[in-house]
Design a protein around this nucleic acid. Structure first.
Length: 413
RNA sequence: GUGAGCGUAGCUCAAUCUGGUAGAGCACUGGACUGUGGAUCCAGUCGUUGUGGGUUCAAUUCCCAUCGCUCACCCCA
């Protein structure tokens, strides 16, 4: 048997309504903040990702699906900020009037070991806003997300925020942090020894070295004046919007391009496993230039649709109306076909019974597919030009002239 | 990439410890009910026990390998 590849899942019809609800809500909410949809290719030159995300990150180092196509290295996108920035530069979107605000919905690919809430093909809904340098837009994005979550009925989450500084203050801070790590070196775990060189900010995630961490310097105490001002503006905007958030000086993003504001929404529901981060994002003021574009700042986030759906509250989905035409003998079958087509002309979803099945089996089938109403057409009905209509919930039956069936069911719907 | 757990019917699982020709519930199909679903009863279909090898008179059971799934670490949405 040929099976789906590891970490890639079918999304079956029964869960599609949830996906559609999430996507619809996102479009709806984001459009009211003047974001517009953009669709970019899944395949991009590998270099787009290595330059933006960072050569030394796990994503670029070992998680991309990459292959060569006529002497060019191509990769399936592991995220979509780089793709949107590329599209912006290539199409000179920054020269258009108005602000450049985009959202996208689509599959991403990372070759990681699958686990709960983590897949090799997963889906992200993301937003990117370009050209707005002030901290107000940072807060507005959080506000928009809060609205989006409210609309979906998700309230078991917390908002974590931080500032990563900029190209002038972050390197100074990292040196300071490394010095502190070196001083404590002897007592640090293996993982932390490795993090020291590769990604020192990650030490704060360590589960074993908590005691030492408490004395390490934190980034929020080491911001330059401009970054501090930006962060203060961000915090005060959130306050004006009455959005509760928690400052996590240890909050780091895994991609190199982030500067200043970073944030994450973490689910506090136990429906998710240990991968409980619903979305992550932040400001990337240098990224457009890194990709040979103009001087243009940006901020955005990406949220994981699979995780979001796991965090969705259970609500009963009402079954859609569905009709079934059961029939007896050839003449009944012929009339059933005609009736079904007439109903479909009016947009009604209707199935016709299998002519090889006895009336009893047709009813069973109607019940199984969840038909709310069954029409019966047999010799008796044919003779009188009527249709027997049975309500499957109450079991009541009535006889209606063939020409009045549509009027009858719309009246009762 | 590392670690742990698990692979038996379409699904959920038993039998594995203590080796002896694989079983239940659900689902499915048909009948009781010849023009009416859901409830009940009866009958029927369903397996290369993930795969390959080893030990044994005999392996679903013990051993080795391999593949797959799941969860966790790393890291991330």
């Amino acid at each position: 048997m040929i099976k789906a590849v590891r970490g890639m899942k079918d999304i079956l019809p029964e869960e599609i309504p949830l996906w559609q609800k999430v996507e619809e809500t996102a479009r709806d909410v984001f459009e009211t903040y003047l974001y517009h949809e953009i669709r970019t290719p899944i395949l991009e030159p590998t270099e787009l990702f290595s330059r933006s995300i960072g050569e030394a990150t796990d994503i670029v180092e070992k998680e991309m699906y990459t292959f060569e196509d006529s002497h060019q290295q191509l990769s399936m996108r592991p995220e979509n900020t780089a793709g949107v920035v590329r599209a912006l530069i290539e199409n000179r979107l920054q020269d258009l009037r108005g602000s450049q605000r985009y959202y996208y919905i689509g599959p991403m690919f990372r070759r990681e070991r699958p686990q709960k809430g983590r897949f090799r093909q997963f889906h992200q809904i993301g937003v990117e806003a370009f050209g707005d340098a002030g901290p107000y837009v940072d807060a507005e994005i959080i506000q928009m997300l809060a609205r989006f979550f409210r609309r979906l009925g998700i309230d078991a989450y917390e908002v974590r925020i931080n500032s990563l500084g900029c190209r002038s203050c972050r390197p100074l801070y990292i040196e300071k942090l490394r010095a502190a790590m070196d001083a404590a070196s002897a007592t640090l775990c293996e993982d932390c020894q490795r993090r020291r060189d590769k990604n020192p900010l990650r030490v704060f995630d360590c589960k074993t070295d908590q005691e030492q961490l408490a004395s390490f310097p934190v980034i929020t105490d080491n911001l330059c004046a401009a970054c501090q001002e930006h962060f203060d503006g961000f915090l005060s905007s959130l306050k004006k919007m009455a959005i509760p958030s928690i400052v996590y000086p240890s909050l780091v993003r895994g991609l190199d391009y982030y500067t200043r504001t970073t944030f994450e929404f973490v689910s506090t529901s136990d429906a998710l496993g240990s991968q409980n981060s619903l979305l992550g994002g932040g400001r990337y003021d240098g990224l457009v230039q890194v990709l040979d574009g103009p001087v243009l700042c940006g901020i955005g986030f990406a949220l994981g649709v699979e995780r979001l759906i796991m965090a969705l509250p259970d609500v009963l989905q009402e079954a859609p109306l569905c009709y079934y035409v059961a029939h007896i003998e050839n003449e009944g079958f012929a009339r059933a076909l005609t009736l079904a087509e007439r109903l479909r002309d009016h947009g009604v979803a209707v199935a016709v019974g299998n002519p090889l099945k006895a009336i009893k089996a047709q009813f069973k089938e109607a019940d199984k597919m969840g038909a709310t109403t069954v029409f019966v057409i047999g010799p008796d009905e044919a003779k009188q030009g009527v249709v027997t209509i049975k309500d499957m919930k109450t079991g009541e039956q009535r006889s209606v002239p063939e020409s009045e069936v549509m009027a009858d069911i719309t009246e009762r719907a």
